[in-house]
Amino acid sequence: MLTITVPVRQVVHATPRTRILNLDLEATAFHFRAGQALMIGLQGSPLRKPYSIASAPWEVAKTGVMQVLVQIDDSGALDPHLELAAPGTVLDVEGPFGTFELPMDSRPLLFIAGGTGIAPLRSMLMERLLRSGAPRVGLVYSVRVPEELAFRAELDALQTAGRIAAYFTVTRDNTATWTGRRGRIDRALLQDALPSTDAYCFVCGPPQLVADTSGLLRTLGVDESRIQIEKY
């Protein structure tokens, strides 16, 4: 595990409740595996919090930028220990850590995200799509309202190109403008999205979503050894 000091290159508005911190690693060698996380805080501060890396390793190597998805509060402020983060702000970054990562073989994959749980799954998704002959990947993504779908344009483009099969569902939206799925992730949705019962399934999100979804996958015949979870 390594501790480095890096500047924030850019803060991007991802959704009304999240921001993407683009960390400048152009002058820093930092190796990680898709799905891993970091401990991040302002330079010199003892306060650090874990965040999953949203970028794939090849993206960081190519651009020198590492993306981290950060939730904001109702006032629009970042987490208290990062509230001063802006372009040029220097952060202490420790890591990588975690075993929530891609398998090396080429079995089908199903990613299941709730809210900001999309971050490590995006990292793994982009890493898998780089591999030659990678099978189609399934993604189930649950949020409260459509505006909270982070990386939406990118995911839509991958779906249109036939690279992924994406299933979005919203749990609190009552407007007529959303014509997609509504409600929590249920057995029927997972049955539609599951490429096969021997697929590796990665679930990341709030504890209740993770517990409920893992149980539903088992009822569909997915062995527990092929269900990897990460909750926050």
Score class of each variant (00 low, 15 high):
Ile4His: 00
Val6Pro: 00
Pro7Ile: 09
His13Asp: 13
Ala14Gly: 01
Arg17Lys: 15
Thr18Asp: 13
Thr18Glu: 14
Ile20Gly: 10
Leu23Phe: 06
Leu25Thr: 03
Glu26Gly: 09
Phe30Trp: 15
His31Tyr: 03
Ala34Asn: 07
Leu38Ser: 00
Gly41Ala: 00
Leu47Gln: 14
Lys49Arg: 15
Pro50Ile: 12
Ser55Val: 00
Trp58Phe: 10
Val60Lys: 05
Thr63Phe: 06
Gly64His: 10
Met66Gln: 07
Leu69Trp: 01
Gln71Arg: 15
Ile72Cys: 11
Glu83Ser: 12
Ala85Pro: 04
Pro87Asn: 05
Val90Asn: 08
Asp92Trp: 11
Val93Lys: 09
Pro96Tyr: 02
Thr99His: 07
Phe100Met: 10
Leu102Val: 10
Pro103Trp: 11
Phe111Trp: 10
Ala113Trp: 04
Gly115Val: 14
Thr116Gln: 03
Ile118Arg: 06
Ala119Pro: 01
Leu130Phe: 05
Arg131Ala: 04
Arg136His: 06
Val137Lys: 02
Gly138Cys: 08
Leu139Val: 14
Val140Ala: 11
Val143Met: 04
Arg144Cys: 05
Arg144Met: 08
Pro146Gly: 01
Ala153Cys: 01
Ala153Gly: 03
Leu158Gln: 09
Gln159Asp: 13
Gly162Trp: 14
Arg163His: 11
Ile164Tyr: 07
Ala165Thr: 13
Ala165Asp: 14
Val170Asn: 13
Val170Tyr: 13
Trp178Asn: 05
Arg181Thr: 02
Gly183Asn: 13
Gly183Gln: 12
Gly183Glu: 12
Arg184Met: 09
Ile185His: 05
Asp186Val: 09
Asp192Thr: 14
Asp192Trp: 07
Ser196His: 04
Cys201Trp: 05
Phe202Pro: 08
Gly205Pro: 06
Pro206Asp: 07
Gln208Asn: 02
Leu209Trp: 05
Val210Met: 06
Gly215Met: 12
Leu220Arg: 11
Leu220Lys: 09
Leu220Asn: 04
Gly221Asn: 01
Glu224Phe: 04
Ser225Gly: 12
Ile227Glu: 06
Gln228His: 15
Glu230Ile: 09
Lys231Leu: 03
